[in-house]
């Protein structure tokens, strides 16, 4: 299993996940859906943020991510709407600043990925549209050869033509790099046609999980 969550339950008195268990093999796309406030983004944050307390285990490539959290992040590409880049700098400046933290980072790969995303490396991040920002963050994640991609509603701002191309890129990534993708989405069509497995969250609980059969 590339990603495995075992009985993960948050310890916060506020909203938290409850008894989340699932596994994802390399080479597959898992779609996560649910109403607003169901816990979809929270699930991704449980993986990304080591300050969130929970019981249970989250394994990445068989290793507990909390044993060496920063090392685990080396293999994860996280694309969300959060402000995790420097908005006053260009895409390439951000890449030069932040890319070196990853052991597998390659600037040439970033430039190639940006070309594929049809985005200029010199565009200021703060001036990008929502769709362009998602593309830039995806290109950044691809440049450090992530093994696990966590995509939080990235296709919302993309035009329909590019969205089709985007899913082709995702399929290429999981085949060529044996990566896995967890895609949080609101778009029904994506859940039905574009993913291999689907999970439905409701009030922090995974009420449904299974293979998508077309």
């Amino acid at each position: 299993m590339l990603l495995e969550m075992k009985q993960v339950t948050g310890l916060s008195k506020k909203f938290h996940l409850e008894e989340i268990s699932f596994g994802l093999e390399p080479g597959y796309i898992l779609g996560i859906a649910g109403k607003n406030g169901a816990g979809k983004s929270t699930l991704l944050h449980y993986i990304m943020d080591d300050r969130i307390a929970y019981k249970g285990k989250i394994y990445l490539n068989g290793k507990d991510i909390r044993e060496n959290h920063s090392k685990s992040l080396n293999e994860i590409g996280f694309v969300s709407e959060e402000n995790s880049f420097f908005y006053q700098y260009s895409a390439i400046q951000n890449a030069k600043l932040l890319g070196e933290f990853y052991s597998e980072w390659e600037e040439e790969r970033f430039i190639e990925a940006m070309k594929r995303m049809e985005l200029s490396v010199n565009k200021i991040v703060g001036k990008m549209s929502r769709g362009e920002l998602s593309k830039f963050k995806m290109a950044f994640a691809m440049a450090h050869r992530s093994k696990l991609y966590l995509l939080d509603e990235v296709t919302g701002g993309m035009d329909p033509v590019f969205r089709k191309e985007f899913f082709q890129i995702l399929r290429e990534i999981i085949v060529t790099e044996e990566a896995s993708i967890v895609l949080v989405t609101h778009i029904q069509e994506e859940l039905e046609l574009k993913v291999d497995y689907a999970g439905i969250l409701e009030q922090g609980k995974l009420i449904s999980f299974g293979e998508v059969v077309c």
Binding site: D50, K71, L73, N74, F86, F101
Partner: peptide, 24 residues
Amino acid sequence: LIKEAGKTVTINKKLSYLPVSHFD
């Protein structure tokens, strides 16, 4: 700290999802 669109944000926030610990 860094100024961004008129607001001051912590640099640590920008580094929070990178493979480097708060301790380091």
